[in-house]
C-alpha cells in the first residue's frame, strides 16, 4: 500500500511517546548499578581480613598498600590498608583473589576531588567510621 512506510514511522514514534524514557535524571535519581558493577572505593571488613596480602600482590597497578604486624600469638594482623583509587584500573583481581571475601566495591562512584590525595583511601579508618556511625545512629549512613 502506498504510504505504508509513513504509517509505520508514525506508529513507532507514537509507541516511543508512551514508553518509559531512557533518560536518567542523574544527581537526583541514582542509577541502578548491576551486581557486578566495578567502581567506587574498596570497602574492607578488617575483622574478616587475614592479612594474607594477596590483594596487594595481585594488583597490576600496585594501588593497594597494606602493612601487617604480628600480634602476641604470632598471628599476622592488618595494621594499615590504603587503596589508591587514582592508580586503580578496576580490574577486580583483588576482589576475586581475596580468600576471605572481605573486600568489595562500595559502588559510590562519585568521589571526584581537587587533589590526588583525596583518591588515597584509608580503608580501615573508613570501616571503623562506618561501624561507629552504625552503633550511634542505628541507621545506615551514606557517607
Amino acid at each position: 500500500m502506498y504510504g505504508k512506510g509513513l504509517l509505520t514511522g508514525l506508529g513507532i514514534t507514537l509507541r516511543e511517546f508512551f514508553r518509559k524514557k531512557a533518560t536518567e535524571r542523574y544527581p537526583e535519581v541514582r542509577p541502578k548499578l548491576t551486581e557486578r558493577f566495578r567502581g567506587g572505593k574498596l570497602a574492607l571488613e578488617p575483622e574478616k581480613c587475614i592479612a594474607c596480602g594477596l590483594c596487594s600482590l595481585n594488583c597490576p597497578n600496585g594501588s593497594i598498600r597494606l602493612v601487617t604486624v604480628k600480634d602476641e600469638a604470632g598471628k599476622r594482623k592488618l595494621s594499615e590498608y590504603e587503596y589508591d583509587a587514582g592508580a586503580c584500573m578496576y580490574c577486580n583481581l583483588c576482589i576475586e583473589n581475596c580468600p576471605q571475601k572481605c573486600i568489595r566495591w562500595d559502588k559510590k562512584f562519585d568521589f571526584a576531588g581537587y587533589d590526588r590525595k583525596h583518591l588515597i583511601i584509608d580503608c580501615i579508618a573508613v570501616a571503623n567510621a562506618k561501624k561507629a556511625a552504625e552503633r550511634e545512629g542505628g541507621a545506615e549512613t551514606h557517607e
Binding site: 514514534t13 516511543e16 511517546f17 524514557k21 531512557a22 533518560t23
Partner: peptide
C-alpha cells in the same frame, strides 16, 4: 520531541 526520542525533554 523528547518523548518521541526516548528522552524527557526539558525537565
Amino acid at each position: 520531541a523528547g518523548f518521541m526520542q526516548s528522552r524527557l525533554g526539558p525537565h
